[in-house]
């Protein structure tokens, strides 16, 4: 095929290649090479600054990993967090999208309100919530105590179950809006005639939602779900800023544990094996993503 390429096409392709090259260079340097290097690191032992030469140790780190309770805990925390927050986000996201699709006054402001939580840095959002959760001076306890709902301050972030719940709430607050935006775009692409036909057929509002809206939203919902799942699986600054993984390790996500192993315990190679496992989990998800997108066309 190469030889049959006409000079006209070849010149264009060469220019095209030149256009793509800088992007490929940066992506390789920042994304592709580091992943490969992490894989290499995970099978060996070395030092951060390279003073100690790389030594191949085979599956040693992965064997350690298999017996590392804290790793299994972090994997469990990550999966629990994902499994709890995604359905909530989805329900709220669909609700918000349906709401935003209605006509009412002050829609601009409402839309902005939906967009803000997404647009602000997660790290700082988390700080805001941590302040509201604060056991002694936080807004939630102030309201709860003053209204007499509780007698003693609730330790939102100090109890294992409550801390996980609190974390899920922050995540749901931030990302339901993202879900809503994607689903809203899907909603707006549903032709109005379908609803008019539905009304002619005598459908109720709820039947319209069940029979027309939901089936046609399948695509956008799927996309939003997968994008969000992958985000949740790599959650980092949320537990980092909210609880630092605590109490004990009740909210320590995979990303957070890997970070601590690498930069607090300075165990580069062991940390690399954790991120490789995390990478594999997410890579499988991303393959699922691409396949669903392919099937959509």
């Amino acid at each position: 095929m190469m030889s049959s390429l006409s000079p006209l096409d070849r010149r264009r392709q060469q220019t095209g290649l030149a256009f793509v090259t800088p992007t490929l260079l940066v992506i390789s340097l920042i994304l592709v090479y580091p992943i490969l290097q992490s894989i290499v690191l995970s099978f060996g032992s070395s030092s951060i600054d390279g003073s100690e030469p790389y030594r191949f140790v085979g599956l040693k780190h992965y064997m350690t990993l298999a017996g590392d309770d804290r790793f299994w805990n972090s994997l469990w925390v990550t999966l629990t967090f994902t499994a709890l927050s995604i359905p909530l986000e989805l329900i709220l996201g669909v609700g918000l999208a349906v709401l935003m699709n209605e006509h009412f006054r002050g829609k601009g402001l409402a839309r902005l309100a939906v967009l803000f939580p997404w647009a602000l840095p997660t790290a700082l959002n988390t700080l805001m919530w941590r302040w509201m959760y604060n056991a002694d001076y936080g807004l939630f306890n102030a309201v709860a105590l003053q209204s007499g709902i509780v007698e003693r301050p609730i330790n939102w972030l100090g109890d294992e179950t409550l801390a996980m719940m609190s974390m899920v709430i922050v995540s749901v607050w931030k990302t339901s809006s993202f879900m809503a935006l994607i689903i809203l775009a899907g909603l707006q692409s549903i032709p109005r005639e379908l609803y008019e036909a539905g009304r002619m057929d005598g459908m109720s509002k709820w039947q319209e939602f069940r029979e027309i809206t939901l089936p046609l939203l399948r695509g956008p919902i799927l996309v939003a779900l997968i994008v969000r799942s992958m985000d949740a699986l790599r959650t980092f600054e949320l537990p980092f800023n909210l609880t630092d993984g605590g109490p004990v390790t009740a909210t320590e996500s995979l990303s957070l544990y890997a970070y601590k192993v690498i930069f607090d315990f300075i165990e580069f190679n062991y940390g690399a094996s954790i991120v490789v496992v995390q990478f594999l989990v997410i890579f499988v998800m991303s393959l699922a993503y691409i396949f669903t997108l392919r099937n959509k066309d």
Partner: peptide, 20 residues
């Protein structure tokens, strides 16, 4: 390919990026 690599978790880049 570009879509696939965009899904890499940032933390998995850290050991190598920091070193490099």
């Amino acid at each position: 390919f570009i879509l696939a690599v965009s899904m890499f978790p940032p933390v998995s880049l850290l050991p190598s990026l920091f070193q490099n």
